[in-house]
Design a protein around this nucleic acid. Structure first.
Lengths: 134, 134
DNA sequence: CCAATCAACTACTCAATGGCAATATAGTAA
DNA sequence: TTACTATATTGCCATTGAGTAGTTGATTGG
């Protein structure tokens, strides 16, 4: 299942090809920070609510059901992490996803998780069959 | 436990059988948990140290320079998250990455981050050029 | 049997963070 | 000006998680 849709590195990648094995703690720190941004349900909700395009804070609040202060705080974090961009229009502020690559990432993880859970369920069923043979 | 969790897949949809937008909070929680596992430098170090194959705890400790209790705790977490698998051989316990897909994921993120940083540097240079014109 | 080694577990401290409420700030209209 | 709406920020509290030290359990060798 792993040989899937992950795009191969472009042959022209100018910057140092990053082989994870030999990454400096600093680089790992950057990666960890990135993953941390996506490691909370609230922020994932916000990201998801922006999949259909840019939204202002009020719309995000309505879509996600989160509190205003929370949304603002999370948006700040997402913004600082470079995940979303900020654009002010009159009274309201519109946010939007900077790099749609994040959606690919999420769907990749989503697929992997569903497969994993599927297998777990299968194993559970086998256990059940042992305990309740027909 | 998780009855519905991740969306069901219609075998027809090829690529996007998992549309993030409409995920339940439960499913988002699973994703968040997954990302959380990868959101600490220590765990990333451990994962990286396992890229070359399975290692026992002592080897992981040597490779990463982390403390024993620490490594044990993180390995437990990684194990529960289904990221690594455990195999006992005599006294020592060998861990290994369950799904190499995680490496693709990391490299994907790594690429994206390096591009992002590259652009930031470019912008900084432009700013510098403005402040110090020749 | 005893000693050494490897790994897991427990208890603890400390720092970070999410969420909520209240307050502050900024733009807009009356 | 005042009032109103939309964001942002701050302070507080509870939770979480990382790291450390000490202990336990299991295995191997003498």
């Amino acid at each position: 299942m792993s040989g899937k849709t992950v795009k191969k590195k472009s042959t022209t990648s100018s910057t140092a090809d990053c082989e994870i094995v030999q990454l400096s703690p600093t680089a790992l720190g950057l990666m960890a920070d990135f993953f941390k941004v996506l490691s909370e349900v609230s922020r994932l909700q916000i990201v998801c609510s922006l999949k259909s395009g840019s939204k202002n804070v009020t719309e995000i609040i309505k879509t996600t059901g989160l509190g205003q202060a929370n949304v603002s705080k999370h948006l700040k974090m997402l913004s600082q992490a470079g995940v979303v961009s900020r654009r002010q229009e009159g009274v309201s502020v519109y946010y939007q996803i900077v790099n749609p690559f994040i959606f690919e990432l999420c769907e990749l993880v989503c697929d992997a998780l569903s497969i994993q859970i599927e297998q777990q369920n299968k194993q559970l069923e086998e256990l059940g069959a042992i305990r309740h043979p027909r």
